[in-house]
Amino acid sequence: MADAQHLSATVLLGVHGRKRAGTGDEFWQYRPAQAGDAYRQIDWRRSARSDGHFIRQTEWQAAQAVLIGVDDAASMTFTGHKGRPSKLRRAQTLAMALAIIAVRGGERVGLTHLPEPPRGGTAQLMRMAQALMDGHEAGDYGAPRPQVMPMGSRAVFLSDFLGDPAAIEAVLGRAADRDVRGALVQILDPDEEAFPFDGRTVFESMTGAIRFETLKAKSLREAYLERLAERKARLQEMCRRTGWRYHLHHTDQPAEPALLWLYRALEKVRA
C-alpha cells in the first residue's frame, strides 16, 4: 500500500468528468440559449453581461466501475535479478495505485477474481490489498477469470500473458458482449525479452512441473524471440478487435510511465 500510495501521487489527480453536458456539480461551459431551452436553465448573471441568453452546463460525472485483474500464477513470481521486483509485485503495485486513483476520482473498484461487486472508499482499497496478498491462482500460468463484469464497466488485466492465449481471447470476447472495454498490461522481466542464455542451461518452470535441459541454449534464442513476438502480436490483435488497448511493461523500468499510460488509456476508453 505504501508503494502504491507513493506511485499514485505521481499522477495528477482530478475529477474524472466525461467532458460532456449532463447532471453534475462541476462547471463545464456556457452555451448560447436555443429554442426549446427552459427559462430556468438560463444563467441570468452571465446573460446580463452580454446581449444574449446563456445556458450554464455542468459536466456529466457518473461513477463507474473499474475491474482489475492481477495474474498471480507461479510464472509471475519470476525475476531475473535480485535488484528487480518480480512481475507479480510490479503488477500488484500498479493495480493498487490505479485503484487509489479511481477511488479518489469517485469511482468504484474491484478485483476480477472476487465475487463481490466493485465498491468505493478507503475500506475497499484495504480489502483489495489484502486479497492481492492472499493469492488465488495455482499452476505455472494464469488467465483472467472475472466473476463479476458489470455492463459498460472498464477493466484492466495485468499479466505476463505467457499461458494459453485462447483463455484471454475468451475473456475479451465476453467483455465485448457486455460493452466492457479496458487494457491489457503485459509485464515481462528483461531476461524474458533478451534471452541471455548460452551453453549448458537447465530451464525450469516456477513450479518445477516443466523442465528442459540443453547444451546449446544460444541456438534456441532466435526461435524463442520469434514465438514471443508472435504472442505480443496476437495480444495486440485481440485488443484491436475488441476495442481494448495493449501496453508492454518491463520490470527494470520505473512504474510511473506504466501507471500514467493506464490512467490515460482508461480515460480514452471511457470517452
Rank of each mutant, 00 (worst) to 15 (best):
V148A: 05
A170K: 13
A194G: 05
D134A: 14
E169C: 03
V185W: 07
M126W: 06
A155I: 04
S205F: 11
L94R: 03
D164K: 09
M133T: 08
A129P: 01
Q147W: 10
P196K: 07
G110Y: 01
D164M: 11
I101W: 08
R84S: 10
T207A: 10
F203E: 04
M133H: 11
A175L: 02
T93P: 07
G105C: 11
E116L: 12
E192F: 14
Q147F: 09
T122P: 00
D189N: 14
F195Q: 00
P117C: 03
P144Y: 07
V109R: 00
R178K: 12
A166Q: 14
F195G: 01
I187C: 05
G182H: 06
P117K: 08
G152W: 14
A97D: 05
G121S: 04
M128D: 01
Q92R: 08
F197W: 10
F161E: 06
D134P: 03
D191K: 12
L132Y: 01
L114W: 03
F157D: 03
R84M: 13
I187G: 07
G110W: 02
P117A: 13
V185D: 13
F161V: 09
A209C: 04
T122I: 06
P165L: 11
V202G: 09
L111G: 00
Q130A: 08
L88D: 05
R174F: 14
L158C: 15
S159G: 07
H81A: 13
T112N: 10
K87I: 02
G182D: 04
E213L: 13
I210V: 15
F161S: 12
Q186A: 02
E169N: 09
A131E: 00
P196E: 06
F157C: 01
V156C: 09
M128L: 14
D164T: 12
P146V: 00
E213Q: 13
A91Q: 13
G110C: 05
F203K: 06
I100P: 00
P118G: 10
P144C: 12
P196S: 07
A102T: 12
E204M: 11
R200M: 12
P85Q: 06
P118F: 04
